[in-house]
C-alpha cells in the first residue's frame, strides 16, 4: 500500500482502504479502481490523501530499510547518552514496522 496526495493519483490505481471526506462520510470503498471523475471529485471535496494498493509511484526521496538503518547508525555514532540510545531503539522499531507495512 502507498499513501498518496490526490495530485499523485492516476486512473486505474486501486484503493487500499475507504476514502473519507472531511466530514467522515465514505466517498469510495476499498478495492475500487479509480477513474478520472472520482479523482476530480476527491479534490473538489477537499480529500488530501488516498491510500492505494501496491506502490505504484516511485518517490525519489524514499529510502530502503537498509539505507535507513545505515544512516541511523551514522547519526548515532559515538552517542552514549542512555535516553538517546533508547530513542534510537524506538526509531529502529518504527523503521522495521514502516517497511513491513509498505512491502507488498
Amino acid at each position: 500500500m502507498q499513501r498518496l496526495p490526490v495530485s499523485y493519483l492516476k486512473p486505474g490505481m486501486k484503493t487500499y482502504e475507504e476514502v473519507y471526506d472531511a466530514q467522515g462520510r465514505v466517498l469510495c470503498g476499498k478495492g475500487v479502481e479509480l477513474t478520472e471523475e472520482m479523482i476530480k471529485r476527491f479534490s473538489e471535496l477537499g480529500v488530501s490523501y488516498v491510500t492505494v494498493d501496491g506502490t505504484p509511484v516511485k518517490l525519489p526521496w524514499e529510502k530502503t530499510l537498509e539505507e535507513e538503518l545505515q544512516e541511523l547508525e551514522k547519526r548515532f555514532e559515538g552517542i552514549r547518552d542512555e535516553n538517546l540510545l533508547q530513542i534510537k531503539e524506538i526509531i529502529k522499531e518504527l523503521l522495521y514496522e514502516k517497511h513491513k507495512a509498505s512491502s507488498p
Binding site: 547519526r75 548515532f76 534510537k88
Partner: peptide, 19 residues
Amino acid sequence: VLVHARGYGKTLYDGVPPL
C-alpha cells in the same frame, strides 16, 4: 533532538545533538 534523531532535514549537526 527527535527530528535530528529521525534524520529529517539537515542542519549544522551531522549527528544527533545532546538531549
